[in-house]
């Protein structure tokens, strides 16, 4: 998995390239926690380049969303393809997490 982080209008956008799974989820956790420690509170995780996510990756997103929320910020997800979107639906995490079609829509109003 490769991670790229950029900032746009005060929002940290983290793009996940490859798979988000139990053996690499720590990388995403660390990237978000480092930005949080540096004062960032608004995050978008972009899955436009992601192949698949496992249950550990889903669990990390639940934890990060909670953690960022507790810090007074917000974490949104974007650009899930149909397969990835179905994973959030069948686990009902689409009701817990904020999911947007595109990065632009996720950044807007954050």
């Amino acid at each position: 998995m490769g991670l790229t982080t950029r900032e746009e209008n005060g929002v940290v956008i983290v793009t996940v390239d490859g798979q988000l799974i139990v053996s690499n989820r720590q990388q995403l956790k660390q990237a978000v926690m480092d930005e949080l420690d540096n004062g960032a509170t608004k995050f978008v995780v972009d899955f436009g380049e992601t192949g698949y996510i496992d249950s550990s990756g889903l669990g990390l997103l639940v934890s990060l969303s909670k953690r960022v929320g507790e810090a007074g910020g917000a974490l949104r997800l974007s650009s899930l393809n149909d397969d990835l979107g179905s994973l959030f639906e069948l686990t009902k995490l689409d009701t817990l997490l904020d999911i947007y079609d595109t990065v632009e829509q996720a950044v807007e109003g954050l």
Binding site: G59, L60, L87, L90, T91, K92, T95
Partner: peptide, 17 residues
């Protein structure tokens, strides 16, 4: 893991998936 009490837990979704 999709019940209200379990939905916010970070673990326990593997077999369900």
């Amino acid at each position: 893991p999709t019940t209200p009490g379990k939905l916010q837990l970070p673990d326990g979704r593997g077999l369900f998936v």
